[in-house]
Design a binder for these strands. Sequence first.
DNA 1: AAACGACGTTTCAAATAATGAAACACTTGT
DNA 2: ACAAGTGTTTCATTATTTGAAACGTCGTTT
Lengths: 258, 258
Amino acid sequence: MRTLNHSVIKAFDLLDHFTQHHPTWGVRELAQHTGQNKSTIYRLLATLESLGVLRKEIQTDRYTLGLKLFELGHRVQLQQSLVHQTHPVLQRVAANISETVHLGVLRSAKVFMVDKVESPMGLKLSSTVGSYSPVHCTSLGKILLAFQPQDRRRQLISDLDLRSYTANTITRKRLLQAQLNEVRTQSYALDREELELGLICVAVPVFNQQRELIAALSAAGPANRFRENALGEYVGILQQGASAIQSRIGSFSLKTIM
Amino acid sequence: MRTLNHSVIKAFDLLDHFTQHHPTWGVRELAQHTGQNKSTIYRLLATLESLGVLRKEIQTDRYTLGLKLFELGHRVQLQQSLVHQTHPVLQRVAANISETVHLGVLRSAKVFMVDKVESPMGLKLSSTVGSYSPVHCTSLGKILLAFQPQDRRRQLISDLDLRSYTANTITRKRLLQAQLNEVRTQSYALDREELELGLICVAVPVFNQQRELIAALSAAGPANRFRENALGEYVGILQQGASAIQSRIGSFSLKTIM
DNA sequence: AAACGACGTTTCAAATAATGAAACACTTGT
DNA sequence: ACAAGTGTTTCATTATTTGAAACGTCGTTT
């Protein structure tokens, strides 16, 4: 049978607690939060620190993610042919559209940010490669849902938690379903301040040459800079980018990276 | 006493074998290379795969670094105020100088690439954030050595392995010593095809506001584009970037990230 | 000053999980 | 059909992880 190594699982479970939201942890705090014994947590944290995976702040005795993960994480990027191929396209799109551009894939029912290029403007969205966003209130997420095969889409939607972030967030599945149908026919998706007030995004699907959905490409910017009548133009630039990616990645499939 | 978790240490030791040079491993291969039992390796790899830390290629049954590390690695970057502060400066320098720009710090006697912005030119150096380079044959390395406190510098140099990469590589410690003295007086360092033929780099030191050496900033490009009489100009732009970083990072110290 | 509380750290016997040689299952090339 | 190469599973032996309690240290409160 498949007997996994529990210590290693525990270690990575601990690492997952170090989020953008909660970047530092003390021994007792983490022990209490995970329900484990504080000795165990202490030893695991000390081990991870000795490896450079965590770093202990000398003044506070609290732990943070360390450079070893930075190093390992960037080795992955290398081997990820996807990002390597798409980044130049994103740069061009960002330059043309003058807004922050993102590339996201679907991963465990969330939008996983694979790459971004920031807007040249002073006021811009500052987001995070490697982080997750909800699917139901982002343009990337709507694209990634809408172009899923029907049964997979149903499954995903039925498991969704339509948490509300702003007054504009879609919180009813029927409404989401309807909007996804619309997205599929018009081939682009919008997020009108549904995740954050003042933030508007437009996204289009990215297919490989077998016409399998690979990712979604979006532009995001402040609502007051968004010109309603220029929507067609935004979509056009994004679609141009999407097809540039398509011709670059060929028959690349998500199965080769996930 | 300090009793570390051996399983966790072993797991990260395995991860360190997945390098740019050798990105995939099979069970037996890795077992032989580490001198461990193949059952042990098998179970550790299976565990890491179940966590998304490794990914098993379905066709070959070989393992590669997975998206979980990509995710964790990018969480570190966030918390690393250094990169967050310096990236915009690097962008400006890269635009002004039209070459690939790097920011590196000294880590375990090697140059650790913290950030880069690629040249807008077609022909450019394609390097890797999160990787290590030798100190004795890179402009970044020479800066990071030259501006070390004297005793630390002696220690570092005495432990160095002056491996030869090209005919230009400095392989004698006396010569390196002499050049470092020169670097210190002129406040910039050169690498004239010492690591790779056809590649020339210029670097300057980056200090914090306490005048402690934090990092080195370099521009790298093809030798045939390097104009000898424009050296002063390159150095000027880099130094301008270095002082922009200095005023941004304030009293930031390497102790807070390493 | 002394007592307190909160923290990381260490101890040691008991409980548990990791180990490795061998057998197994499977694929690939001869 | 065979051989040689994979990854995978087994199970008794071995070594490690575990957790309650005690310890040392810091800053705050009495």
